[in-house]
Structures are given as structure tokens and as C-alpha cells.
């Protein structure tokens, strides 16, 4: 019969093995997405690079008749217009108040941005459409969440945005698990502890100085 210390040792070995496997399985699963966010992060950090530029040339605008809109609020009416026109994407609502009888808003997703100017009395929507290259669209996915923390009243309203945000959350959670797991793995290596502490403390000091020191 195994003694309590043997059982403890075995549990430790199993935990170590699981932790190691979780570390590289998560790393492999998120490998492509990590590269995409890293590269697009670099592009966001260097807007002067040719690869970072996002052309905003609109196609010729066109007008289209719409049926009387349904809904109690401007946003509900905007959703109805989006449905009528068969558009897809996130409704980007302006911060300024809407003029009476009019609705001006954008419908966007990384590949396309549509600026809608709707005359509710005339029953006419004018649409300016901006099509983006695949590269520009990929770059936009980095920041595409349908919500801004400092913009009240801006919420996600497209299913695909919510799914994308969940994927971004999962990547962030996966990274955190990998980092915590890596601390455990490093700490098990007694010969690397001292040198590891130096690297870790250097990282914490440089990051902590910016986050807390400047405040």
C-alpha cells in the first residue's frame, strides 16, 4: 500500500505532466491567432508603415427606397433598416443626437464599412460603402469588438462580433493559463530558480514602472 508521501509525490508528478501538456497544447492551439494578434499589434504600433495603412476610399454613393420603419427607438428603427437592406455588420451609433426625421449611422465589419444617411419622411436611404482589402480587414479584426469602454451606449449587436469577442477572451484566458503554468514549471527547476527570478523581476519592474510608477 502506498504511503501518504508516495501518493503526494505521485499527485505532484501527475500535476506536473498535466501542466506541461496544457502549456504546449494551448500554445499550439493558439499559435496562429497569437501570430495574427502579434503582427497586427505591430501594425497598430507603427501606423507609418506602408502595410499599416487602411484606405478609406468610398465607392460612389447610392440611394435606395425603404419601407416605413418599425420600432420604438432610433436604434430599433436603424436595425429595421439594416434588415430591410440586407446588410450585415455591427451598428456603429454616433454620439451626437439624431436630427428629427433622420437617421445617420454606420454599419461595419472588418471587410466593409457602410455609412447610412436615412431620410425617414422620404423613405430613402443613402449609402456610402467602403470596401477594404483582406489585409486591411485582418488588421481591423485586432480592435473589432463592437464596444468601447469609454463610449456609453455602444454595445455589440451582431452575433459574429460576440463570437469573435469570445474568441479573443479565450485567447487572453489561454495566455494567462500558459503564463501561470510556466511559473510552476520554472519553479520546479531548482537549478534555474535564481536566474529565473532575475528575468522575472526584471520583467515585473519594467512593466510595473510604466503601469504603476507613472500614475
Amino acid at each position: 500500500m502506498a504511503s501518504p508521501s508516495d501518493r503526494g509525490q505521485r499527485a505532484g508528478t501527475v500535476l506536473e505532466m498535466w501542466n506541461r501538456q496544457v502549456h504546449y497544447y494551448l500554445g499550439l492551439y493558439f499559435f496562429v491567432s497569437l501570430w495574427l494578434f502579434s503582427l497586427t499589434g505591430l501594425l497598430l504600433n507603427h501606423p507609418q508603415w506602408a502595410l499599416s495603412r487602411i484606405p478609406n476610399d468610398a465607392n460612389p454613393e447610392y440611394a435606395i427606397a425603404i419601407e416605413p420603419t418599425s420600432g420604438d427607438t432610433d436604434l430599433a428603427r436603424a436595425r429595421d433598416i439594416v434588415r430591410q437592406l440586407g446588410l450585415k455588420g455591427e451598428i456603429d451609433w454616433p454620439q451626437s443626437a439624431q436630427a428629427p426625421g433622420r437617421l445617420d449611422f454606420n454599419v461595419t465589419f472588418p471587410k466593409r464599412a457602410m455609412q447610412l444617411s436615412v431620410d425617414l419622411r422620404e423613405g430613402r436611404a443613402t449609402v456610402r460603402q467602403i470596401d477594404r482589402s483582406l489585409w486591411s480587414a485582418v488588421r481591423i479584426t485586432h480592435t473589432f469588438s463592437g464596444s468601447r469602454y469609454n463610449t456609453p451606449g455602444m454595445y455589440r449587436d451582431w452575433l459574429l462580433t460576440s463570437m469573435w469577442v469570445t474568441a479573443m477572451d479565450a485567447l487572453a484566458a489561454g495566455l494567462l493559463i500558459m503564463v501561470i503554468g510556466s511559473y510552476y514549471m520554472w519553479y520546479q527547476l531548482k537549478t534555474k530558480r535564481a536566474s529565473g527570478w532575475i528575468a522575472l523581476v526584471a520583467g515585473f519592474l519594467s512593466c510595473g514602472w510604466i503601469v504603476f510608477g507613472l500614475a
Binding site: L175, V179, Y183, L200, G203, S206, C207
Partner: peptide, 11 residues
């Protein structure tokens, strides 16, 4: 290990 605090901040 060095970059991990930055990764935690970003995540």
C-alpha cells in the same frame, strides 16, 4: 519569464 508580466497586462 521576462516578458510574462507584459503578457499578463495585455491579456
Amino acid at each position: 519569464l521576462f516578458v510574462s508580466p507584459f503578457l499578463v497586462a495585455f491579456a
